[in-house]
Design a protein around this nucleic acid. Sequence first.
DNA 1: GTCTATACAGTGATAGAC
DNA 2: GTCTATCACTGTATAGAC
Lengths: 191, 191
Amino acid sequence: MSETKLTTRERILAAALELFSERGYFNTAVPDIVKASGVSTGSIYHHFKDKEGVARALFSDLLAQMDDKLAHIDANNEGAEAQCRAVVALLFQMASEQPRVMAFMLSARHREFMPNEPPICSSRPFNKMRELVASGIEEGVVRSGDPMVLSAMLFGGPLRMISLHLDGILERPLAEYLDESWQSAWRAVAV
Amino acid sequence: MSETKLTTRERILAAALELFSERGYFNTAVPDIVKASGVSTGSIYHHFKDKEGVARALFSDLLAQMDDKLAHIDANNEGAEAQCRAVVALLFQMASEQPRVMAFMLSARHREFMPNEPPICSSRPFNKMRELVASGIEEGVVRSGDPMVLSAMLFGGPLRMISLHLDGILERPLAEYLDESWQSAWRAVAV
DNA sequence: GTCTATACAGTGATAGAC
DNA sequence: GTCTATCACTGTATAGAC
């Protein structure tokens, strides 16, 4: 536990992530963040403009992390099929290991508390996923069609599995559904 | 416009649906519902226990409506494949014609404002969809496998298309994506 | 940069007349 | 059943000392 080594900013964001993903943004008061982080109200407002600013910084950090991981996948896998499969595996792994992070990123209604933020499906990670499908079409491993639709079909099923997992509906650990999910999903778009 | 003929209760629920789905539950104050419905604060609290009670009634009504429509599909279509396809068509149609309703039902984080409500994916309509897939397996038109997974794969893609539509990402009207979406989705689970 | 104390707005909910 | 008026409180954000 290197929690002591975290900067003030990091402690605030860690507490906010915990609380926002657990109870939701609107059920979290600033004094809750104060208690959970051990940082004072004044410090929070020194580091962030307002409560929404905390959420924005958190969301932006998480998107950047996700973006890094996708870039890593891109570099370490050969061909669109392997890359897409690695993306699904990554999403499953993150949903298992950091369910809070995934809940905040995928399920939260960001627009409700960050009115000026674009919807998550137009974020870089989601665009990257669409690009992968598009290159799959060029490679000839994905049938031709609207990349938007094909991307929704390829990743929509696995993302639903993640939702079910986050809602506590699945009987077994999410990882055990990976193979079957991927095989089904790939059938939807394969040539 | 038969708005004048609505009962007080209906006017409250109609206004609440409009506001909750537009701005979200937490961005809607009771006085907002008062203004939008033309009904007084006192009347709202006469008909509902509290603000959460309004949301619960609304959600329950919408689920029941959806349930009716699914029963109708069940009765008017022969075979699991046709029934599943009709479900997807219905969802697309509703998302086009009543985007607010669908946004409130599919995307809202209900647990955040109705703590005792079960997650929507364990609601009757979603169970019905899983049952359809299960009967598809029995009929031999859907490959054998975990019905939970297969259901997620069949409906996950189309539901993502609906999300994209509700977020305003799609270039064309949702209806134009129906055929391509269905064909892809069905491939994922067909024998 | 961090803290405590506090101002102030806006919220959910009630009281009580009609 | 419906209304108006009002309360008590919570939550955001600021002021200002250290």
